[in-house]
Design a protein around this nucleic acid. Structure first.
Lengths: 191, 191
DNA sequence: AAATTTGTACCGAACAGTCTGTTTGTTTAT
DNA sequence: ATAAACAAACAGACTGTTCGGTACAAATTT
């Protein structure tokens, strides 16, 4: 009544909260406390907790897509090196992020088998990530750094899927395995 | 008191339930209903929901370790081929398992950042898996199928981590990406 | 004035966990 | 041999809390 909520800011806070706590251990009450909304405003705006989650995943996807594009469009170095640097930095970022991983990956894991709409949304965002990565992969293939006997789409999928694997693993070890990540890219690289 | 509970059976049911539903969306009431226990018996036996989870993860680890050992000890073919077959079959099994993934991987993701004891237990089981895989990886390296410029431990870790990535991803797509999995092993193979 | 948004009290259901008292097999004392 | 004592396992009603979601009136915007 005395305050018009900034929907974008609320969504960003939602991203943060779901990212840190996951879906089931985050309550609507806590969302309201953290965002300054009341339940009335929340349900009027977002209809349900699940729909709010879907909105946050989509928003998170936007952020990551922008990040990936920014990191890969620099073009100061080879596409291969850009990719290696990108993934190394994203893995490194986990240490200062309390190993929260990636919201899309987290939601695939927590909700994938039980909430179809969430699974579909996560899959959609994953595909968007691949679409940003793929041109760089293709470029690295054409430059001879990656094998050419495999489609760039498939290779992009392998890379990002493996990255997700490292993210999940780092949650339990509380360390980022850079050695393995580096070795992974060394193996991918044509000798 | 006309019934003595079979602790092992209860744990196995717990494995199944946590595997399907995860931690936060599985209640103690449901565990009791499904196992035939009452709350009194449950809390007397397992002390808490979290401790029960730890027990089930350890038990699940035993099952998987046995499975991995059994599949790799056959030795009818090369170590490389045994590994490829093993992972292909495990990925394939997801389709008939409703994409439940691997309990250890699921728990790393859901609980890793919030419950240290669970994170540690998941990490422990993961290490056990690696210890079973590693000798086969080493053998494949010695046979010339895998690169020798990398430690067998590290390579085992890359393989299993990537597999976990594929598991998580299959939860959202509801399909197992065999093409990517096969390509992954093709890339690993020395040409 | 009409429509929309907000705040708050409230709902029934579900949550993890506790409490009291009971049933059991075993150990000890007679 | 019998009985008393005991600890462990058991049953399930019950605790207080939190859950997602609703109702509705007051405030605000149109």
């Amino acid at each position: 009544m005395n305050y018009k909520h900034n929907k974008e800011k609320v969504i960003q806070k939602g991203v943060e909260l779901f990212w840190v706590k996951g879906y089931h251990s985050l309550g609507v009450n806590e969302i309201c406390e953290e965002t300054g909304m009341t339940k009335g405003a929340f349900y009027n705006t977002f209809k349900s907790k699940e729909k709010f989650l879907l909105t946050t995943i989509a928003s998170y996807g936007d952020i990551i897509v922008s990040h990936l594009q920014a990191q890969l469009s620099g073009k100061k170095t080879s596409a291969f090196y850009s990719l290696v640097t990108l993934y190394k930095n994203m893995l490194l970022a986990q240490t200062s992020n309390n190993y929260m991983g990636c919201l899309v990956n987290n939601m695939m894991s927590e909700m994938g088998t039980s909430y179809d709409a969430v699974a579909a949304m996560a899959a959609k965002q994953f595909k968007r990530f691949l679409m940003v990565i793929e041109p760089a992969v293709k470029e690295a293939q054409e430059a001879g750094d990656f094998d050419n006997n495999i489609s760039s789409e498939c290779l992009a999928e392998i890379i990002h899927t493996t990255f997700f694997g490292f993210l999940t693993r780092s949650k339990s070890t509380k360390t980022t395995n850079h050695e393995a990540m580096t070795s992974f890219f060394n193996i991918l690289k044509n000798r």
